[in-house]
Design a protein around this nucleic acid. Structure first.
Length: 561
RNA sequence: GCCGAUGUAGUUCAGUGGUAGAACAUUCCCUUGGUAAGGGAAAGGCCGUGGGUUCAAUUCUCACCAUCGGCUCCA
């Protein structure tokens, strides 16, 4: 499949070359479900052109071309690609003197392959040019931007159509669409981009999600704290965030000649609480948690529904411990993170271990030690993980768990980070058993990541059909006509603690059912003449349909299961 | 931030160089209904914001704002 997709990329390039003879080519690999090619053309390529190029590709495929591989020297390749500056750039970075090129018709590409033998193996009905986008050459912002043409490619036409259908379905689960339809959150231009407004149903979700974790953490010995949304700039200068993270911090606010910033993270406040009194080794590990709302200036193009916003609430916590406690605490955190994902039904996620970046605080030795511990933790938990080289934060290595959204995009939720920076910068210490000052190790962690992002992926995961315990409205009672509104209210009383609504509007029962289904409420209770007389309710379960009439005791048994 | 696309009623979308329509939602009237839309009427829009071209701009053009698809960056 990879060979097929990669070969399609070359056919795309060849077709573009015929339509735009002076085009410069970047790279064109195969990707999940298809391929792309980065191209620089003198005139911009638009959606109409995309159709033209696709047509050209079909024409090219009919020519029965072969993919010819040749091995040559760098010097020779330089001549071949003399009119292709991006190829020359790539060539420069290749090691060794031998390079391979592939020739297909009039198109010759610097490429290590492999490819299919000939275009006979490419089904011209099983590919489709999908979209155009901008992409920096070699993924570097400082480089020029090329036009990336994305294509889908499969073995058969059916597979392509199945994929397109799947994608169409996935789009319906988009949290940005569902969130508004279900009354969970909204955005408003005048409020500002990346600043969600939570509607009543969304506020219930937030509370349920917070309450669940609050309970878990209290049982685990965490102390919950609450800290302000702004603080003096000097605090962030001390922490090093002003130096390393400045472009994400909102500009300082001048208050009576003193500078304040909106907090981009909660850590310095927690450190201050730690330092507010002398700490003993007996208190360690000391665990401090907060649902802390932070504000980060994210570049406009990066915002995305609830999954990337400018103001968000982290389920933040900091753990201070001694070196010999580090492994145990990290193991526990990882397990906690996985437990939570399981609780919410997530099965598709990837784990990453991020190592030391170029710019870092602390010592090389310290990084090595901590990274080794993190790796041990992952190995002992028998988890598959990927290494993200250089992906650590400036202050320490970390383990991240990324959850996929419906369109396959990954969002980092759980993060567990070791910090070599703050304990030093804030001169933190505790008194050990010998009565000496000792510097604690510090762990940052967020299990949900942020409520915003977590709820975003949660909406997509459940397609808005939340399980009973999470549903903002768990039960809706639908009187057949307004003559039964009173009985409906009595039933609501009887359901006490559940989140129940009564549909008292003057509409037909069919319409009320339709609305209830569209609101994705777990149980609809239909009440009319029959039910009132027999003191029962007719239960309709979301996705399952009519369960028939039953006494309230029976219904309560069902929902309490 | 960058490349490209988009912006019309609460929502989803038609449409036009001579200031606008549909469906659903909303309000009112009739209907008191049995497992996914009963019927009718009304109301609702500075056509994203600000310049420019034009006798005339929602339509053409520029800038800005916002959204979408990517890239870069991140929870």
């Amino acid at each position: 499949m990879q060979k097929i997709r990669h070969s399609f990329a070359h056919i795309l390039a060849l077709s573009v070359k015929e339509l735009y003879p002076d085009a410069w080519f970047g790279t064109g690999p195969d990707i999940e479900n298809g391929f792309y090619y980065d191209i620089k053309t003198r005139t911009p390529i638009n959606n109409e052109d995309l159709k033209r190029i696709e047509k050209k590709m079909k024409e090219v495929l009919k020519r029965n071309l072969v993919f010819k591989k040749k091995t040559t020297t760098k010097a020779e390749a330089k001549k071949i690609f003399k009119d292709q500056p991006f190829k020359l750039e790539i060539l420069k970075e290749l090691e060794g003197d031998k390079v391979s090129v592939y020739e297909t018709g009039d198109f010759i590409d610097l490429c290590k392959g492999p490819h299919v033998e000939s275009t006979k193996e490419l089904n011209s009905n099983a590919f489709k040019l999908e979209k155009i986008a901008g992409a920096y050459f070699q993924g570097d912002e400082k480089n020029p931007m090329l036009t990336r043409i994305y294509g889908l490619a499969f073995k058969t036409e059916k597979e392509l159509n199945d994929y397109l259908k799947l994608k169409e379905e996935a789009e319906k689960r988009d949290h940005r669409v569902l969130g508004e339809k279900l009354g969970i959150f909204m955005f408003d231009d005048e409020v500002g981009s990346g600043l969600p407004l939570w509607l009543p149903k969304g506020a219930i979700l937030r509370k349920l999600i917070k309450d669940y974790l609050y309970q878990e953490l209290i049982e685990d010995g965490y102390g919950f704290v609450e800290t302000p949304h702004i603080g003096k700039l000097s605090l962030w200068q001390t922490s090093g965030h002003w130096e390393n993270y400045r472009e994400n911090i909102y500009s300082p606010i001048d208050i009576e000649g003193e500078k304040f910033v909106l907090k981009p993270m909660n850590c310095p406040f927690h450190v201050k609480i730690f330092k507010s009194q002398p700490r003993s080794y007996r208190e360690l590990p000391l665990k401090m948690a907060e649902f802390g709302t932070v504000y980060r200036f994210e570049r406009s193009g990066t915002l995305h529904g609830l999954t990337r916003v400018r103001g968000f609430t982290q389920d933040d916590a900091h753990i201070w411990c001694r070196e010999n406690q580090l492994k145990k605490e990290l193991t526990k955190l990882l397990k906690q993170g996985l437990k939570i994902l399981k609780k919410f039904g997530f099965k598709e996620y990837n784990i990453y271990l991020s190592t030391r970046p170029e710019k870092y605080a602390g010592t090389e030795q310290g990084w090595k030690k901590a990274t080794t511990i993190l790796e041990q933790v992952l190995k002992e938990a028998k988890l598959d993980y990927n290494i993200d080289p250089g992906g650590g934060v400036f202050y320490g290595p970390k383990i991240d768990i990324k959850v996929k959204d419906t369109l396959g995009r990954e969002w980092q939720c759980t993060t567990i980070q070791v910090d070599f920076n703050l304990p030093d910068r804030f001169q933190m210490f505790f008194i050990n058993e010998k009565g000496e000052k000792e510097r604690p190790y510090m762990i940052h962690r967020a299990l949900y990541g942020s409520l915003e992002r977590f709820i975003g992926v949660l909406i997509e995961h459940y397609a808005g059909a939340f399980p009973f315990w999470l549903a903002p409205v768990q039960i809706k009672i639908l009187p057949v006509s307004d003559k039964f509104n009173k009985y409906a209210r009595e039933i609501k009383e009887e359901l006490g603690d559940c989140r129940v609504e009564v549909a008292e509007e003057k509409e037909t029962i069919s319409k009320k059912i339709r609305q209830g289904e569209m609101e994705k409420i777990p149980y609809l209770l239909i009440v009319g003449e029959k039910e009132k007389k027999a003191k029962t309710v007719s239960v309709r379960k979301r996705g399952k349909g009519d369960l028939g009439a039953m006494k309230m005791e029976k219904f309560k048994e069902i929902i309490n299961k």
